[in-house]
């Protein structure tokens, strides 16, 4: 139910994700909320509601898109290596190594030598993002392989593609999507942090992270640019938090 709510909201917002960047109006800088500008204006006189909306749409779009990409990369990697024990070891070792670099540090290291833009952001986040999905798929593929219906399909000569789409993926999906619901929040969080540092989305593109950074600079003059994206992030992250799979904590506890 909540998941479908998020999906609906993001599809609604998707249409606005790549809209313009707002009109600069230097005579109305850093104003509070008014009928003309519902949320006020930023340091260049651009409408904050417009930018807030764009920032939210981009955060959600990136969150959904990148999480799908991570799931895709993770499962494909797991699928590619799991028949061979050596390759599987190698993949897990790579995952361990990448996971032992704090996520933000890895992103920053990669972004230092990429040209700023969407492609750089996607690449930097994807290098570490596939790991949980690959681990999950690898750990479940072994038991799923023994499934009688899959065995039967194999005996009847079904193609690998058919087995994957009709037998394996539908069973992996509940596990992967539970992790992915948390992953969306993590991507939004990371994008916000990188944009806050000026390394995420290109500077002219509105993002909650870069709005917060600008809001921090003009804190004493007008706090509005700080307040709106904070509320937006709070709402979005609480939504993903509420979406967390309830069985997850139990899995970490003592048996």
């Amino acid at each position: 139910m909540k998941r479908s709510w998020i999906a609906a909201a993001s599809i609604l917002m998707l249409g606005f994700a790549f809209g313009g960047n707002g009109v600069v109006d230097l005579f109305h800088r850093l104003e509070g909320p008014s009928p003309a500008h519902l949320f006020g204006t930023d340091e260049l006189g651009r409408d904050l509601f417009h930018r807030w909306w764009l920032g939210g749409a981009r955060a959600l779009t990136l969150g959904l898109g990148l999480t799908s990409l991570h799931i895709l990369c993770g499962t494909l990697a797991a699928l590619a290596v799991h028949p061979s024990p050596i390759l599987r070891r190698a993949l897990l070792a790579l995952a361990d190594a990448l996971a032992s670099i704090p996520a933000l540090l890895l992103c920053l290291f990669l972004l230092a030598f990429l040209r700023p833009g969407y492609a750089a952001l996607i690449l930097a986040l994807a290098v570490g993002g596939w790991i949980p999905y690959a681990r999950l798929s690898l750990s479940h593929l072994d038991t799923l392989k023994l499934d009688p219906s899959l065995q039967q399909a194999k005996l009847m000569g079904a193609s690998r593609f058919h087995n994957w789409t009709n037998h394996l993926f539908p069973r992996l999906w509940p596990i992967l999507s539970a992790q992915g619901a948390v992953g969306i929040g993590a991507v939004v969080l990371a994008e916000g942090g990188l944009s806050f540092l000026g390394l995420g989305l290109p500077p002219e593109q509105a993002s909650w992270g870069s709005m917060l950074a600008a809001g921090r600079a003009f804190l004493l003059v007008s706090p509005w640019q700080l307040i709106w994206p904070s509320l937006g992030l709070l709402a979005l992250l609480i939504a993903t938090e509420a979406n967390r799979h309830p069985g997850e904590e139990a899995a970490t506890g003592p048996k």
């Binding site: 969080l189 916000g192 942090g193 806050f196 992270g209 917060l212 950074a213 809001g215 921090r216 804190l219 700080l226 994206p229 904070s230 992030l233 709070l234 709402a235 979005l236 992250l237 609480i238 938090e241």
Partner: peptide
Amino acid sequence: AAVASPVYVAGP
């Protein structure tokens, strides 16, 4: 709410 307040929101 605590989980949803990353340092770049809570800090400023």
